[in-house]
């Protein structure tokens, strides 16, 4: 149950440079909260879940507003880039359709105009819609503190609901997404009760790379959302597919295995049993769809 009280007093700062931001964080990181779009943070403050003494707005930090792509380095998304801006970036719709698709279902137009992909992953909700797609794409978080930068593989980023491996004095600067290899494709599907303005009851992203001649699967990534304390990859299910030609039977086995590896809970939105069932259905559907995108004929 939530309870909405009036917001307590806090200090608000909006520095214009990365250096100042990092200096503030090194002094006051423990009591501060970073504000990007605020679509997670402000409701949390209003509902009394957190009451920071300092709100540090990072929207004016130039490094966090970068958005570029080149073949070698891949895609770099500044942590404060609004989702709607991301969605109009040509490189994303051309080369990262799975990510575009995942980001396009977040909230509504209004939410996407404010919310950022950085906020989505730093908030670390198990249901964060961009996370399964980013996990599939092998994304890395570039994190900075006064003492320098480090890179975190997204596989090592999510720790628990609302918890990431970013330290209190650190800041997510950007997300790096390697250019997907040739002959690869994938997609994200989620289940919600309401079409929009809802939170995934379960979400699945699948991403496949094939050997062009043999049409066998070279690389397979399957990631789940909302069915475990963190977004997660299902390595067991992935392994079942690697090196194989796709058949209907294998897809079924993989879907079963993914459901097996999920660790869902029952809550007011759905039962664990139903969530597991959804993982199976959505894994199957994303795999079929990915194969279709790659022009693979699935043997029945």
């Amino acid at each position: 149950m939530t309870s909405t009280r009036s917001i307590g007093k806090f200090e608000y700062k909006k520095p214009g440079s990365l250096r100042t931001t990092l200096r503030i964080l090194s002094n006051k990181g423990a009591d501060a909260r970073i504000l990007a779009g605020g679509t997670d943070l402000i409701p949390q403050i209003k509902q009394g879940q957190i009451s920071p003494s300092l709100v540090l707005d990072v929207k004016n930090v130039p490094e966090l507003n970068r958005l570029d792509w080149n073949e070698d380095r891949g895609l770099r998304i500044g942590a404060a880039v609004p989702l709607s801006k991301l969605l109009t970036f040509v490189a994303i719709s051309e080369r990262y359709s799975i990510l575009a698709q995942a980001c396009s279902v977040i909230g509504s137009m209004q939410i996407r105009n404010r919310g950022t992909i950085g906020g989505n992953i730093c908030n670390a909700a198990p249901s964060a819609d961009s996370a399964p797609a980013l996990l599939c794409l092998g994304a890395r978080a570039i994190v900075a503190s006064k003492n320098g930068n480090r890179k975190i593989n997204l596989d090592d980023f999510f720790m628990a609901p609302g918890k990431t491996s970013i330290g209190a004095d650190e800041l997510l600067v950007e997300i790096e997404v390697p250019t997907p290899p040739a002959h690869s494709a994938g997609c994200y599907m989620r289940h919600t009760t309401r079409e929009e303005m809802d939170i995934a009851v379960a979400g699945v992203a699948s991403f496949l790379t094939i050997a062009p001649r043999s049409k066998k699967l070279k690389e397979v990534r399957i990631a789940l959302g909302a069915v475990a304390p963190t977004p997660l990859r299902v390595h067991g299910a992935e392994a079942l597919l690697i090196g194989k030609s796709v058949t209907e039977r294998i897809i079924e086995e993989v879907a079963e295995e993914a459901a097996e590896e999920a660790k869902p809970i029952s809550d007011i939105r759905a039962s664990a049993e139903y969530r597991r069932e959804l993982v199976k259905v959505l894994t199957r559907r994303t795999l079929w769809k990915s194969c279709e995108m790659l022009g693979i004929e699935i043997q029945r």
């Binding site: 149950m1 939530t2 009760t193 309401r194 079409e195 929009e196 303005m197 809802d198 939170i199 007011i268 939105r269």
Partner: peptide, 15 residues
């Protein structure tokens, strides 16, 4: 238990 419009779920125009 569901005291927000997220979990007291009413349809939107898309439903």
């Amino acid at each position: 238990q569901n005291t927000t419009f997220l979990d007291y779920r009413m349809p939107t125009a898309t439903d």
